[in-house]
């Protein structure tokens, strides 16, 4: 079963299919639709990982309120994938969990 719905309103939604990149891998989407939607239609579910817990994150509100879908797009970090429109050749990267805060006792550092 594909990730796309066909039926009411689908004719109005058609726009050209283009190729863009997810972590360097070629993927496809429709011009102008949000990156998160193209990825979701392809079956991708993890869009990034939470910085504190390392847990995977996907789309939550889908309207730009919650910032769960943040990805690095066209070199810019923390872009909301549910808002960012797809175009030919767009570079999309998942943001890996940054290294954890190291706990050092200041009195023994030097």
């Amino acid at each position: 079963m594909t990730g796309r719905l066909h039926g009411i309103g689908s004719a109005e939604r058609q726009s050209p299919t283009v190729q863009f990149y997810l972590d360097g891998k070629i993927v496809t989407g429709m011009v102008g639709e949000p990156v998160a939607m193209s990825l979701w239609a392809l079956g991708e579910r993890t869009l990034g990982w939470n910085e504190e817990s390392g847990e995977p994150r996907g789309v939550f509100c889908n309207i730009g309120h919650c910032f769960e879908c943040r990805m690095t797009i066209a070199g810019q970090p923390d872009q909301r994938a549910c808002l960012y429109p797809v175009r030919e050749g767009l570079e999309v990267r998942r943001q890996p969990r940054p290294s954890a805060l190291t706990i050092v006792d200041g009195m023994t550092r030097l």
Binding site: M1, T2, G3, R4, L5, H6, G9, S10, R13, E33, P34, M37, W40, A41, R45, T46, L47, N50, E55, P56, R57, G58, V59, F60, C61, N62, I63, E68
Partner: peptide
């Protein structure tokens, strides 16, 4: 927070605005 959990409005946008299936 698991991927696949979304707001009901988010599912509406996914399905109606973008024609993307939220899941099976």
């Amino acid at each position: 927070t698991l991927p696949g959990v979304m707001t009901v409005g988010g599912a509406q946008v996914m399905a109606n605005v973008h024609g993307v299936r939220p899941g099976q």
